[in-house]
Amino acid sequence: MNRFDYARAGSLAEALRDGAGDDARYLAGGTNLIDLMKENVERPLRIVDINRLDLHGATELDDGGLRLGALMTNAETAYHPQVEQRFPLLASAILAGASPQLRNAATNGGNLNQRTRCYYFYDTATPCNKRDPGTGCGAIGGVNRIHAILGASPSCIATHPSDMCIALAALGAQVQVTGPEGDRTIAFADYHRLPGDEPWRDNTLRAGELVTGIDLPPDDFTSHYTYLKLRDRLSYAFALVSVAVAMKLEDGRIADARIALGGVAHKPWRRVEAEDTIRNQAPSTQAFETAASALLAGAIGQGENDFKVALARKAVVRALGQAAAGTPQSQIDKRVA
């Protein structure tokens, strides 16, 4: 880790002042940033500690939704009574990720802004366009079991590693940010981005901007939801493929369905046209397969991750079935019903 200046922000204004410039990084829980600093992937000259900012609570919104403070920890969020009761999909996804120790430190804002776990991004002895623009991509033609099958580019095939964000994508959350030019709201689908030819840009935050909260819309997905996570071991591993489903059934037909995939792309993967294929349909394996085909259209493996295309298809069908049946995947008992 390199030497750096340390500033402790007592207010948002102080944070934005001290966080200006390419060499500064905001520090919240630190579970990813400090790790990246130990690997010399991140080498900030100034750390702005934002942990004293008043962003630790959850507040009710006028529209009936819930605002999660950016500095609530992942554990505080998953076990918050309002989240447990009204947004069980989010609680389930958070508890599918990381370990209890990490969830006790990692924050909601940090979860959004965590970097890929691509081996090449972490290894400074190898090329990586995300870490060092223009050096190439080691994962293309290399070790790529965990890499993307959708939305990748010739310059980057990394995936976003979050579980929480997959649920937030399905729930249609909104990200509240503040910055030198004021406050703004970013729809979750627009927050993370595909790599294109600028893979070093993970999201659409502007210079100096800071996430202050995450707004959950009031929609009721408490009866028909699931977070299905498939990985190499049953706990404490990143997803090879994960599926978040939020569904509403009315009179035996699907009135609304949201399907988001994790582990397959540079951002949580949703396609409204795939969801539209099952709207007003009765739940059936055939309908779910149609939706899976639309969601995965164009999916292509990179060699070692070819299996993900078929795995994702089966996982989508399974998850839609779990949601329709009202039998969400347990994050304790990992058996897949």
Partner: peptide, 13 residues
């Protein structure tokens, strides 16, 4: 009272 990984937190924080 809460468990965390002490390797991933700065003492100053």
């Amino acid at each position: 009272g809460r468990r965390i990984n002490s390797c991933l937190t700065l003492a100053v924080v």
